[in-house]
Design a binder for these strands. Structure first.
Lengths: 155, 155
DNA sequence: CAACTTGGTTTTATGATGCAACCACTGGAG
DNA sequence: CTCCAGTGGTTGCATCATAAAACCAAGTTG
């Protein structure tokens, strides 16, 4: 098989995430969905992507439990795509991508929008990694540990 | 053009990030680099990917300023790939991907490792989005604002 | 029911991916 | 110096994914 190597069975959680949303469009679709878009045509016109690709991505996202199809909403007999909890859970990923771009992009002046706290209108703070007790952690302060064996009985 | 639509010129910072590291391998390469890998062969054997793809990805990452080639390190005349500051700055993205998988994966028991605080050996806290003043923010507490116009003189 | 919109699928061309084979250079043994 | 193994790639080819455009069916509107 020459297929595009799926990471589904991989033990690395990063690879597993990428398997679900590591392509060129999925995260952008989710971004628009978080923004309130729900309809096929809305995604298509906002993102300017080919309709067949959009259809394939939406199907994939639904299969992965990131989007769900809702029967209606505005009365019409059409269908909508709404984020599940799993889908909304990608928000930190999007924020991290955004902040990385803001911090390191070679042409930051081309970035059109900033993410702000709705109440104050001020930019949100950079994401920080903290220990359970609240200490700020750098990458070097962390390490990977094997996952503790699950309790042997089915649970 | 039928090309794989680059987002380089896009105004959305998420798209810009994805343009640099939104393919199937780049983030995994960065992950291994953060882990300490530096040599072509190390990446190749650890990730099990084709050498031509690895070469292309490394070149792309170097072009994007995420990796840099260092002349040596252990005396041998070979070359190494080391993360730049921009590359190390992707750490929150990787953590966000990892945590998303930990929180929402359908088969979490297959995840082999957990990210822990080196000092205490306890899992790191989930990433949180906070306002400038420290208030915890949910996605709904945020909004996008147009970037303030840059000071008009070249600066 | 005719025309238009919405939400797709099909077709076809091209770029990306993956594997294997091949090649250049290093470094060491004889 | 020569031979040989290991490192670090590149090149060809087969296959897959992507993109654009054409097509199409159901819903909806007049």
């Amino acid at each position: 098989m020459v297929k595009r190597t799926s990471f589904e069975g991989d033990a690395c959680p990063i690879a597993r995430s990428l398997d679900a949303l590591g392509d060129w469009w999925s995260l952008l679709i989710i971004r628009e969905a978080l923004f309130g878009l729900r309809r096929f045509g809305e995604f298509q016109s906002k993102l300017g992507m080919a309709k067949n690709i959009l259809a394939a991505r939406l199907r994939s996202l639904v299969d992965h439990g990131i989007l769900a199809t809702a029967p209606a909403s505005d009365g019409s007999a059409y269908q909508e795509y709404v984020l599940t909890a799993k889908g909304r859970g990608t928000f930190p990923i999007l924020v991290a991508l955004r902040q990385w771009s803001e911090a390191f992009d070679d042409h930051p002046e081309e970035i059109a929008t900033i993410l702000v706290d709705r109440e104050k209108g001020r930019p949100v703070k950079k994401l920080e990694m903290r220990a359970e007790d609240g200490r700020l952690l750098s990458p070097a302060d962390t390490m990977l540990k094997p996952r503790p064996a699950p309790r042997r009985r089915s649970a």
